[in-house]
Design a protein around this nucleic acid. Sequence first.
RNA 1: GGAGACGUGGCAGAGUGGUUGAAUGUACCUGACUCGAAAUCAGGAAUACGGGAAACCGUAUCGAGGGUUCAAAUCCCUCCGUCUCCGCCA
Length: 426
Amino acid sequence: MLDIKFIRENVDIVKNACKVKGFKDYTDEIIVLDTRVRELKTLTQTKTAEKNKITKEIPTAADKTSLIAKSKTIGDEIAADIDELATKEAELNDLLHRVPQIPSSDAPVGKDEESNIEIRRVGKPKKFNFELRPQWDLLDMNNWWAPEKIAQICGTRTYALMGEAAELDLAIQTFVIQKLISKGFIFVQCPAITKPQTIFDAGHFMGSDLSVMNNDVFMLTDTDRCLAGTAEIVLNSLHCDEILPESELPIKYAGYSPCFRKEAGAAGRDTRGLVRFHQFHKVEQYIYCKPEQSDEMHELLLNNLFEIMEDLELPYRVIASSTGDMGFNKVKMHDVEAWFPSEDAYRELGSCSSIGEFQARRTNTRFRENGTNDVKFCATLNNTGIALPRAIVPVIENHQNADGSVNIPKALQPLMGGRKTIGGRK
RNA sequence: GGAGACGUGGCAGAGUGGUUGAAUGUACCUGACUCGAAAUCAGGAAUACGGGAAACCGUAUCGAGGGUUCAAAUCCCUCCGUCUCCGCCA
């Protein structure tokens, strides 16, 4: 969420953000409510001060009865104002949670992904001198999965990796985790089970009614819990209600967790292959820093993902997301897309987001500034480290051989017992 | 799953209805003493919101929310969390 003071003083900026991001503009209602709320606060506080004063005199007063009566009268007056205040504050709070983060001035303006801009391209799609096999053929012929069986027993959008593909999955995860650890990230294994409030605090959802997330999030029946769609959720709340010393910033986390998503809006899409599932596994990069460090940290996070693409020897490109495509809570977002030969296209493997103070305001995560002793909200950022099994797809497709075997990228070979290839017709 | 105990400031720990935003200890910051340090002494220091140019003033906060009362850290209810024992278990 944004600071009400900021909204009050920068109505035009906020209105513009609503417009370019494609969200309904509630600023006018907010300003009216805010004015009334402050009026009521001043009023009730003045009356409360008066009442407190009388109450304090009661124990030592000669005539207690009249003071008690007086105090009671003021109490009744306050009660009426408090009622209105509570209602108005709840309304205001709900609307404040519907105001989007202000996008960065360097983000492309546009209403959807049509306006996204490619800003970087590394590596060239390899020319194959044989007929390349799409992922599902490679997986079939090497017995690396069992899609029909798994769908039958576990339902659609589930998968099981088998044999060398399962090993490869684990090797990629381990590789990325070790890499991030070597760069000073703290490795955190995050729970996937969490409370709805935690998901809400990550700022992907609007308003104050938590039930809005039911469409996207798996709720656990008969409990107050649900399944997180990313480790970002838990990492984002890891320091809630804390005041961190400035000297500790930036804090970098590499979170690993299973991720659960309903994929309600993706019916019929990516139903074949290892691309889209209700459960997948992800290493997530997450940073807490000072607001002025955001851009630097954004580059750092992006570069880590570039390195990972290069270590996996994948051709990739980078997309600057437009205002309309980046989402409710983001300042800016870059997608990293790897080359998927079978689709003759680049597809998203990771998404790097700069959130500013938006999430920290929801989680109340702050830091104390060295010189001034002021308490300020942290900025947060997140980027994918690697998401599996999707990342398996470009690895096996790009590195396939004519016999259906797959070359292991050099960086992964030590984690695959030194093997240089897996699979293939014996 | 069964039984019990508990949740106060950075930490420890008083406080069972009124002058307690909260004793005391400790950690922290500043000053004095010192060549410097330790020790000692003096002082300072929470967060949010509202008002104010500011100094500052007011209100709220003793896990969270609600209730009783003129008045709640203190009494009642609900929820959350922690700990101990038993059971179960990777």
